[in-house]
Nucleic acid binder design. Structure first.
Lengths: 339, 339
DNA sequence: TTATTTTGTGCAATCGATTGCAAATCCATT
DNA sequence: AATGGATTTGCAATCGATTGCACAAAATAA
């Protein structure tokens, strides 16, 4: 294990017979340094294989050039594509990205946030867990004016930037679509009331029904955790009602898929016996049979934009920028399951 | 913007009328500190809301408690689940994870590695890009004895730990399976020769044919980038041969899916006209019609294990541990497309 | 030539924690 | 009470870069 002497600005300074401060300034393109010495230092730095010690610089400048990310699960397509967007933009600005996952557990989320805080990330991009019903951990950041940006799932009691899709109107759009295609009895498998996204989708559903003069039938609204299993059970309950629905708006693609599987097993024709619409446009939705109508959420863009916004805030932390709530459009994709 | 005075060990020291060194040691459970003062310091730290400055500690100790990860794309299920595994384990050991993606470009990969190096990660877990045909950037790490662990796709010229699946035997297994089910003319859509995984799969394919005494037919081996588009073209070429195959081993599930789509459009029955097997068990593979035979790769476990190994190495950097090549088993999942 | 700017560099403190070595304290033993 | 040894604690240097302020050098003006 041969020791490689790590080159510091002091080594450069010695070689060039100038002070370390000058070296530091030269490397940072400080205007007070003459072009001549700047070149000299540059040259020497390359020659000696100098590499700046990020840690020391961070300690002094109290910046880490790092943004923290908390998502429920990394391996879900919507989130991984958002992360991809975050990483791609952060990259261009020389920022690092630390990823953590909450597994949709409040306790783990608190832990993640705490870790990011301790590691002094310059900002945090977060999509909260299904259990998050408190905001104490998030205040760690907001109290210290460290930027937070929520994407998709947000905590309403924290005042900061948000990037979401228009879940309300999308829920409305989906329901209207089912009505237009002739469905008379439309049910909805919703997610936890706690989360804005599921609440909004449900409200959009209710509004569309109301506008069309369709009464909400007892038992047509299922509130679940939107897992495969819960979806299957909820759909089974719906279909064994005395008057089962002929159209179901599923809270996500996973539950729509379980519904599809239930139909296959029970010999129900989709969309003729019951039409189905999901949410998120998972990679499988386009390729199942029948293909699944769903809503495309711009995951990558949301991540990209969140990164843009947070880095902008970090770089302009002295100026007061009013918080913004970005609402990105969704795209209803009508496929076989509701044609 | 009210300034919150950041508490340091010096503040604690002042309050307790002891030295900062004692505080530091007490907080780090140094044995030379009496139980009494240890408790006192602990108490005070909580009371004053002390939080250690990770940056300062890192600077001094030359450790960052961070591992860097480079994957071709974050939003591919195999990789995102591997990352999930890495994150889950690293979490338990108090390590952070910095994620970067190469987008399967050598240049970007070099950049990623450089950044991780500059940020002084304690170790790097990497799956190389499709273009990687040099190792200079990787030597940055190996030359300085900073641990590298490859997973899935590795660079053969760098001597270090690897975690891979047995692509050769899996390729063999897939091909044998096609032979056993009665296929007489078996083609293979392979990936770039550069990558071990694709080369091994192809060699397994060839070996199985040889063992069965089946000659390799001219034009039955397509080498592609394994994208959806290239897959479709390659499959089309195969099917328009004078003597088209009745079984195709596709290099991954994406190309298997394009094959499936081609068959649907061209009215070919799967598996009767042509049987298909993919690789990776993407989420969509189980739910397409017909469902896709494929191979399950333990992405999560590979990530988890890579994290275990690298953290072990980091914590035992003074001792010499011989490099290991872990070969994890795969699971052939036979579904409708090759039944 | 002298006075006044402008421009370029250096000094030394600082960021917050860690650590080798020395010094101080404690307790037991003679 | 004095000595010896074990146990605790403090001093001060260190990690490597940044930065306010002072000062020197060069350029300009008087």
């Amino acid at each position: 294990m041969r020791k490689s002497p790590e080159i510091t600005i002091h080594h450069l300074a010695n070689e060039l017979k100038i002070s370390a401060s000058t070296v530091s300034r030269a490397l940072n393109d400080n205007i007070k340094i003459s072009e001549k010495t700047r070149q000299l230092v540059r040259q020497k730095a390359i020659e000696m294989g100098y590499r700046p010690n990020v840690l020391a610089a961070n300690l002094r400048s109290k910046k880490t050039n790092t943004i923290g990310v908390v998502v429920p699960r990394i391996d879900r397509y919507f989130f991984s594509s958002a992360i991809s967007g975050i990483e791609d933009y952060a990259w261009t600005k020389g920022f690092n990205v630390i990823i953590t996952q909450s597994n949709d557990l409040l306790l783990k989320e608190i832990n993640c946030v705490q870790t990011l805080f301790n590691n002094r990330v310059d900002g945090m991009i977060i999509s909260i867990s299904m259990q998050t019903n408190e905001d104490k951990h998030l205040r760690l950041f907001s109290d210290k004016n460290i930027p937070i940006i929520f994407f998709d799932r947000f905590c309403p009691t924290i005042d900061c930037d948000r990037i979401v899709v228009d879940d309300f109107n999308t829920g409305h759009k989906i329901t209207s679509h089912l009505i237009e295609r002739g469905c008379k009895r439309i049910a909805h498998i919703a997610g936890p009331e706690l989360l804005n996204i599921y609440r909004d989708r449900k409200d959009g559903y209710l509004k569309a029904l109301k506008e069309a003069g369709i009464p909400v039938i007892e038992g047509y609204l299922e509130i679940t955790g939107l897992t495969k299993e819960e979806g299957k059970l909820a759909f089974a309950r719906l279909m064994s009602l005395p008057n089962p629905p002929d159209g179901v708006f599923c809270g996500n693609d996973t539950t729509a898929l379980s519904a599809l599987e239930y139909c296959q097993i029970n010999n129900l024709k989709v969309p003729n016996d019951v039409a189905l619409v999901g949410f998120s446009d998972e990679p499988f939705s386009a390729v199942v049979t029948p293909s699944l109508s769903t809503v495309k959420q711009p995951g990558y863009q949301m991540g990209f934009q969140a990164a843009q916004k947070i880095i902008y805030r970090i770089k302009n932390s002295n100026s007061i920028i009013p918080f913004e709530h970005f609402i990105l459009p969704t795209q209803l994709i009508i496929r076989e399951s509701s044609k």
